[in-house]
Write a protein that binds this DNA or RNA. Sequence first.
DNA 1: TATTGTGAACCGGTTCACAGCG
DNA 2: CGCTGTGAACCGGTTCACAATA
Lengths: 215, 215
Amino acid sequence: MSSIPAATVGRLVTYLRVLTDMEQSGVRATSSDELGAVAHVSAFQVRKDLAYFGRFGTRGAGYTVATLRRELRRILGLTRPWHVAIMGMGRLGQALADYPNFDRSEFRLEAAFDVDPAVVGRRIGDLTVEPVSVLPSVVAERDIDLAFLTVPAGAAQAATDALVAAGIRGILSFAPVLVTAPDHVRVEPVDLSAGLQRLTYYVHGTPDTPSPSPG
Amino acid sequence: MSSIPAATVGRLVTYLRVLTDMEQSGVRATSSDELGAVAHVSAFQVRKDLAYFGRFGTRGAGYTVATLRRELRRILGLTRPWHVAIMGMGRLGQALADYPNFDRSEFRLEAAFDVDPAVVGRRIGDLTVEPVSVLPSVVAERDIDLAFLTVPAGAAQAATDALVAAGIRGILSFAPVLVTAPDHVRVEPVDLSAGLQRLTYYVHGTPDTPSPSPG
DNA sequence: TATTGTGAACCGGTTCACAGCG
DNA sequence: CGCTGTGAACCGGTTCACAATA
């Protein structure tokens, strides 16, 4: 049982969403059946995924929404605040900087960086854009854990190297390129253009000749 | 050989990127070995992925970059222009609307929609925001194939239903919720907050006790 | 009785070794 | 001779059946 399948981690995130919705709707209890139906996953799969981490239900009764939700938040590391920096204050970086949803989450935007002197010093949301030269000291002083990588493709690897050198632990990369980081730094791609290209694969083909079978 | 693994489709997108970079750098020929090294995939895997679709190389010699690139573009459905609408002109929708990279790609932004009368009529990039009431006629008239779903979580399912009813074939969803669509409409999630939560899973744990093993 | 938790069977994707061929 | 293309072996994730238990 050494290593958890990546697919399981992804589904845990989905289960957490469903449980959060349930809790807000006042639902107290649920079952692997119900949870699976909402998450589009089999009840077997729900139970197997949870079994990697412990036993959270009551046989014959199911799961308590609040309890299971708390456990999933703990498993996913969402019980403490995460300090986040934005690397690259182009349009996407700016859009993320005043994304209001972060206010209610465990993610705290602590800094914003750009190489362009014309952008440095500008206020965006309640951050002031800082030059990349101060990245190492800012990361250390404000205990920054994670970064959004929102620089152009050509700058992505250099920016990643700088983040790694500064001591960042994880990177959410929006760059439309493959960036490489050492094993102790996790890179999670959120890739607009890759998603778009996968989409065309599944959608193309004429309406007559059915599209390539979905995965 | 009925259905292609989803992972293969994702890797084809990566191979295409690598080949595009190679072509721009003037590299004429490559091999499954080299391609795999750059894409962080085994040479076996590269050859197996390609074998689902045909035979594109020359035994003993390898692959011609231009040829393989053309074939991958064809396989992924990237040889014709795709007409795209943006649904939801909040910050993210606006950021996408003047994302300059689309100019050079096969994706053409053709329309932007919002429910908010205060936003309708505004010009963003070279689009004018239109009310959702005209969605069906606009989709039909401008032959719109795909949509970016950039509405708040609470509006995501209703917006999806509207897009489906209007005849959209594929949706790139940025909504932090699970949206459901009929089988003939493909939904590809590009999920910021899910990515962030997967990231914390892999990063959390003390520096002493090693983090959960990566997938 | 109802539903969880789990060892075993199954299946599909990855890895491999090598046959095919330029 | 070198590298692709591919049938077979392997492995890991999913599915399943059922034992455990509130």
